[in-house]
């Protein structure tokens, strides 16, 4: 009887492990299919979570890596590292601007500069929502412009030095890997504009989302 039970348990174990192996193989197969798909559409995907705090509070940070010093200061809390994001953009073929210096960040309203670099198209999607333009999830204070001109600012050295985790800033920035050229440095500090997460579009606080970066295409 004992031997029989042992054999039975062993059989179950074999079947179970085989099943896992099968699942892994199928996962790998589907990952491979996804990789093939991604290769067809060159893009960088950043996994993130919604930070509901900024539905009602202003911020200048669109997407920040959660372990950076500004990890809790953004509309979206990235689960992916800003340095890996930089490398992925370079691998995509994007050219960094590297034109904004740290000293430009303390400029007054008349002396700010706009970020330069490869123009990027940015989208966002989440479970149950097909991809939509990133601008749709941003709300601005009265008179503010939510039309974003996202550029690959670069700033890898500043990002390594400051460790803020900044991936996408909503006005031009000397530390964020990408930022918005439509607003010069100091725009939010000098209250030219305030940005918020759009709670009528974004899902609830804590929801996982994917932010998609592609090289700009003229349409």
């Amino acid at each position: 009887m004992k031997k029989f039970l042992l054999v039975l348990v062993a059989l179950f174990a074999i079947v179970g492990l085989a099943g896992c192996g099968e699942e892994k193989k199928t996962e790998k197969k589907s990952e491979a299919k996804q990789e093939v798909k991604e290769k067809e559409v060159p893009q960088v995907v950043v996994n993130a979570e919604v930070n509901g705090k900024y539905f009602t509070e202003p911020t200048r940070h669109g997407v920040v890596f959660k372990d950076g010093s500004n990890g809790e200061k953004a509309i979206l809390r990235s689960l992916d590292d800003q340095k890996k994001f930089y490398d992925d953009l370079v691998a995509l073929g994007a050219t960094p601007g590297n034109n904004v210096k740290l000293t430009d960040m303390t400029a007054d309203m008349d002396h700010g500069i706009a970020v330069d670099g490869e123009k990027l198209d940015v989208y966002i999607k989440w479970e149950g929502q097909k991809e939509i333009p990133f601008t749709d999830i941003i709300k601005a204070s009265k008179g503010g412009n939510t039309d974003l001109d996202i550029r690959f600012g670069g700033n890898l050295e500043a990002a390594k030095e400051k460790q803020t985790g900044c991936i996408l800033c909503l006005d031009s920035c000397a530390v964020g890997i990408t930022s918005n050229a439509n607003y010069k440095t100091g725009s939010t500090q000098n209250n030219v504009v305030q940005f918020f997460g759009n709670d009528t579009v974004l899902p609830a606080d804590g929801t996982k989302v994917q932010v998609i970066f592609r090289l700009h295409e003229d349409k």
């Binding site: 509901g52 705090k53 009602t56 509070e57």
Partner: peptide, 16 residues
């Protein structure tokens, strides 16, 4: 009584 959000900030600000 926030001009943009009324009293909605009470629901998120202290908790955040």
């Amino acid at each position: 009584n926030d001009p943009m959000f009324g009293n909605a900030r009470f629901a998120t600000l202290p908790a955040s």
